[in-house]
Simulated scan of single mutants.
Amino acid sequence: MAKDIATRGPNHVAIIMDGNGRWATQRGRPRLFGHHAGAKRVREIVEACPDLGVKYLTIFAFSTENWKRTQTEVAGLMSLFRRYIQREARALFEEGVRVRFIGDRMKLDDKLVTLMDELELLTAVNSKVHLTIALNYGGRDEVARATKRLAYEVAAGRLDPKDVDDETLPRFLDTYVLPDPDLVIRTSGEARISNFLLWQSAYAEYEFIDTLWPDFKADEFAGLIANYSERDRRFGAIKT
């Protein structure tokens, strides 16, 4: 069964990790307690990927809209990201995980950006699992930044406007080296995509589940992968 899932399952899974704050509130704890619990859950899901045939995993860690949260929560999250990278870097490298970050780094503090750069460099030789972390990421922001880079290429005479089509813009996206996601999962019971991988997910399958992210375990992940393997994906075509 596991072999069948790995054969017919998704190559690239993207996850909107939602519900950390509610998980903590249900336990009478501050929201940051939930974020710390959620960060620990990431390791289990990453480790489950190879046996499930998932080569690429992209997780939504912090959106461009999350800056609207309280200063205390934002500062706590930034501290958590720094500690996560420092704590997990060696294990990710040894487990064959290649880490990439997508999103606008300009608003992030220098220490965090340095740690991100170092982790990407450290794991650049790995290929067992490609883990992409979306940090200060928004789909609209990504498309706007990509369009700006494309416009500069046109203005510099390196790109003819007549040659711009739906295969041109993706070369300027943060995810230009990644395949599009096959399956997008959102935890916590919310049924919206929250500005995540808008261009890339045009033909992705979606799973909206009630489980809060800190409670999302590898067996439930495997079940969603199995569900995906039963879907009939036609990409707009009709079976003949």
Score class of each variant (00 low, 15 high):
Lys3Arg: 06
Lys3Gly: 08
Asp4Trp: 14
Ile5Val: 15
Ile5Pro: 11
Pro10Gly: 03
Asn11Leu: 14
Ile16Cys: 11
Met17Glu: 06
Met17Trp: 08
Asp18Leu: 03
Asp18Glu: 07
Gly19Arg: 10
Gly19Leu: 12
Asn20Pro: 11
Trp23Ile: 11
Ala24Met: 01
Thr25His: 13
Thr25Ala: 14
Arg31Tyr: 05
Arg31Trp: 10
Phe33Leu: 00
Phe33Ile: 05
His35Arg: 06
Glu44Met: 05
Ile45Phe: 06
Cys49Val: 02
Asp51Phe: 01
Leu52Phe: 07
Leu52Ala: 12
Gly53Phe: 13
Tyr56Met: 01
Leu57Cys: 06
Thr58Lys: 00
Phe60Asp: 03
Phe62Trp: 06
Ser63Ile: 07
Thr64Cys: 03
Thr64Ser: 12
Lys68His: 15
Thr70His: 00
Thr70Gly: 14
Thr72Gly: 14
Val74His: 02
Ala75Ser: 14
Leu77Cys: 11
Leu77Val: 02
Leu77Phe: 08
Met78Gln: 14
Arg83Ala: 10
Ile85Tyr: 00
Gln86His: 04
Arg87Tyr: 02
Glu88His: 00
Ala89Pro: 00
Ala91Tyr: 07
Phe93Arg: 11
Glu94Met: 15
Glu94Val: 09
Glu95Cys: 10
Arg98Glu: 15
Arg98Leu: 09
Arg98Phe: 09
Arg98Gln: 15
Val99Thr: 14
Val99Ala: 04
Arg100Gln: 14
Phe101Leu: 02
Ile102Cys: 08
Gly103Ser: 07
Asp104Lys: 03
Arg105Val: 12
Leu108Trp: 12
Lys111Thr: 15
Leu112Asn: 08
Val113Gln: 03
Thr114Trp: 07
Leu115Lys: 06
Glu118Gly: 11
Leu121Arg: 15
Leu121Cys: 01
Leu122Ile: 02
Ala124Phe: 10
Ala124Thr: 09
Val125Ile: 11
Val125Gln: 12
Asn126Lys: 04
Asn126Ser: 13
Val129Asp: 04
Val129Trp: 08
Thr132Gln: 10
Thr132Glu: 10
Thr132Pro: 02
Tyr137Phe: 13
Gly138Asn: 04
Asp141Glu: 11
Asp141Arg: 05
Arg145Asn: 10
Thr147Asn: 02
Lys148Arg: 15
Lys148Phe: 04
Ala151His: 00
Ala156Asn: 13
Arg158Glu: 07
Arg158Ser: 15
Leu159Tyr: 10
Asp160Val: 13
Asp160Ala: 12
Pro161Ala: 03
Val164Asn: 04
Val164Met: 04
Asp166His: 03
Glu167Gln: 14
Pro170Ile: 06
Arg171Gly: 04
Phe172Ala: 08
Asp174Cys: 12
Pro179Asn: 12
Asp180Tyr: 10
Asp182Val: 11
Val184Gln: 13
Ile185Met: 15
Arg186Lys: 07
Gly189Met: 05
Gly189Arg: 08
Arg192Leu: 09
Arg192Met: 11
Ile193Met: 13
Ser194Cys: 08
Phe196Asn: 05
Leu197Phe: 07
Leu197Pro: 01
Leu198His: 02
Trp199Gly: 11
Trp199Thr: 10
Gln200Cys: 13
Glu205Cys: 09
Tyr206His: 13
Asp210Trp: 01
Thr211Gly: 01
Leu212Ala: 10
Pro214Arg: 03
Phe216Asn: 04
Ala218Glu: 08
Phe221Tyr: 12
Ile225Leu: 15
Ile225Val: 15
Ala226Gln: 13
Glu230Leu: 14
Glu230Thr: 15
Glu230Lys: 15
Arg233Ala: 09
Arg233Gly: 01
Arg233Val: 04
Arg234Ser: 02
Ala237Ser: 14
Lys239Glu: 11
